[in-house]
Simulated assay, not measured.
Amino acid sequence: MWEKARPVNDLLGPNDPACVELTGNALSPGPFVLVGDHAGDAIPAALGDLGVSQADRARHIAVDIGSAALGLALARRLDAPFVAQAYSRLVIDCNRYPDHPEAVVETSDGTGVPGNVRLTPGQRQARIDAVFEPYHAAIEHLLDKREAAGLASVLISVHSFTPVWQGRRRDYHFGVLHDGHRDDFALAVLDRLTREKDWTVADNQPYVMDETDYTVPRHAYPRDLPYLEIEVRQDLLPRRADEVAEVLARALAMARSGTAASR
């Protein structure tokens, strides 16, 4: 199945891509629902290139490199739906509260974003209406649909991280993010990944899930859903996306089986 949410705001023209792409089986009997906050790199034609070079638009500042390929590979293995944001995080970051300073950045990792400087409230709201809210509405609709069908859901937020940050090498392959709220499942996945012979995993690295995170708190917490925000090192993706997906799918399935049995 492949569905697309059509543009609903004047910011997106007829030739702009749909802001949400849904692949996989929305009503899969399996529990996993995959989301990709930073999967895409599109920029609305009305915004030009935001004043950012093509080279910088291909960097981690604009997109979670390889996360789309990983989400699709996981969706195939888990028979799960994957809700992916098509637009660059430089347009608006869908994992930040809309009024947060990091939602629309003026600089990122040393690169200026002139097209994001001194936005009017109306310009900012246009991005929220056209990109941010349709993405989260699609996730809500999917979870509502599954709940109405009597299906359990486990929310998996798929991200990737740059191997080097501010001169420091990040040598682990995976990061498991959680924040203490209903994190039994996330901790079970962390435990499973630590048992993988050729792979290394870090707990709440390279980022800590905190009050700046938006997607998991908005969708998992009110429904009391198990969740996981997984980070995968970008130099593994997309070249080794299938291999990584195999490892993660195994850990997710085993963790789900263990936590479900214990509840």
Rank of each mutant, 00 (worst) to 15 (best):
I139F: 03
G51S: 11
D144I: 13
F132T: 07
F32L: 12
Q123R: 02
S28I: 09
G115C: 04
I65S: 04
V154H: 05
E147L: 13
A103F: 02
G48T: 14
I65F: 05
A86W: 08
A126S: 06
A138I: 06
A130G: 08
L50I: 13
G112T: 14
V52S: 05
F132D: 00
A58I: 06
V33C: 08
A103H: 01
G40S: 10
D93K: 08
L72S: 03
A86K: 10
S108T: 11
L119H: 03
D144S: 12
V63G: 02
V83T: 09
G36N: 03
D79S: 14
D37L: 09
D41Q: 13
E102Y: 05
Y135R: 07
F32Y: 13
G30S: 15
G122N: 03
V158M: 01
L142I: 04
L78C: 10
A149V: 04
N116M: 07
D64S: 00
L142W: 08
S108F: 11
E147A: 13
A103G: 00
S108M: 14
H38W: 10
S157K: 10
D109V: 06
L142G: 04
T107F: 11
D37R: 05
V131K: 09
R118P: 00
E140N: 15
L90M: 03
Y135E: 12
T120E: 01
A68L: 15
P114A: 11
D64R: 03
A84W: 03
A46Y: 09
V105N: 01
N95D: 10
E106Q: 11
V158L: 04
T120Y: 02
A84G: 10
V158D: 00
D41F: 12
R96M: 04
L50S: 12
A73F: 01
T107W: 11
H159S: 07
A75E: 01
Q54E: 15
G48Y: 12
F132I: 03
R124Y: 07
N116R: 10
G112N: 14
Q85T: 10
R89E: 00
G150R: 08
R124M: 08
S28T: 14
A75S: 13
R59Q: 14
V113L: 00
V117R: 15
S153K: 08
G30Q: 15
A73Y: 01
Q125F: 04
Q123S: 02
H159T: 03
A137E: 15
I61E: 03
I139K: 09
L78D: 05
E140L: 13
D93E: 07
A42E: 14
A69R: 05
C94I: 05
G40R: 08
Q85F: 11
F32T: 02
G66E: 00
V91C: 10
E133P: 15
H136P: 12
R59P: 09
G48Q: 12
A138F: 00
L90I: 08
Q125W: 06
Q54G: 15
D49Q: 11
P121S: 04
A126I: 00
G40V: 06
T111A: 14
G122F: 05
H141G: 12
S157G: 11
I61V: 11
G110M: 08
G71I: 00
E133S: 15
G150N: 09
P134N: 11
I139C: 10
I61D: 04
V158P: 04
S53E: 15
F132C: 02
R89P: 07
